[in-house]
């Protein structure tokens, strides 16, 4: 199955199953990519998992993205799914506002999503609803912000020896 027909098949299935919760589908760099509404993401991934023909039963990765200039849709979460028997790969994306960071957890579908969602909570502060153990995983426990958000500087804020004269800041 080529990527174009895969795109069409999934587009039809998602439209009939989820109606207006399914937003758009397009090929991004030969990669079928689907955008759905945030609150239905767990249902969409469950549907793609259970569907006999599609059977996306392996979660390659999930990642959060911060678009600070994208007013009202500052955050995105991208899920990369894989059908191992047929070697098909797709992406599912959700976009949402910084004021509403609650995303349904998919840990009940993929146990492997547990640490991935913890990582995105750690670095972006996204609240995964239904996650069994949502706490920091990589950063130290007493860190008081989510460092991969673009509003924070990359550099360690405690350095006193770096000034503009020497480092061109």
């Amino acid at each position: 199955m080529d990527n174009n027909s895969l795109l069409t098949i999934i587009q039809d299935k998602l439209t009939s199953q989820f109606g207006s919760d399914f937003l758009s589908a397009e090929l991004v760099a030969e990669y079928p990519t689907f955008i759905v509404k945030k609150d239905s993401i767990a249902n969409v991934i469950k549907f793609l998992y259970d569907d006999k023909e599609l059977a996306f039963q392996y979660l390659t990765t999930l990642a959060a993205i911060h678009y600070p200039d994208n007013q009202g849709q500052e955050f995105a979460v991208m899920y990369q799914l894989h059908n191992l028997p047929k070697n098909l790969r797709i992406r599912v994306k959700i976009f949402f506002s910084v004021n509403d960071l609650a995303v349904p957890s998919i840990t009940s579908i993929f146990s492997g999503a547990n640490w991935m969602e913890r990582q995105e909570y750690d670095f972006f502060g996204i609240q995964f609803i239904g996650h069994p153990n949502l706490k920091r995983i990589l950063n130290m426990d007493d860190m008081d912000y989510h460092p991969m958000r673009k509003e924070y500087a990359l550099e360690d804020g405690t350095r006193k020896d770096k000034d503009d004269k020497m480092f061109g800041r």
């Binding site: 460092p147 550099e155 360690d156 405690t158």
Partner: peptide
């Protein structure tokens, strides 16, 4: 000194 890793996660 933290070396090249002047970043939030590394002890300086």
């Amino acid at each position: 000194s933290g070396g090249i890793f002047d970043t939030y996660s590394v002890l300086q």
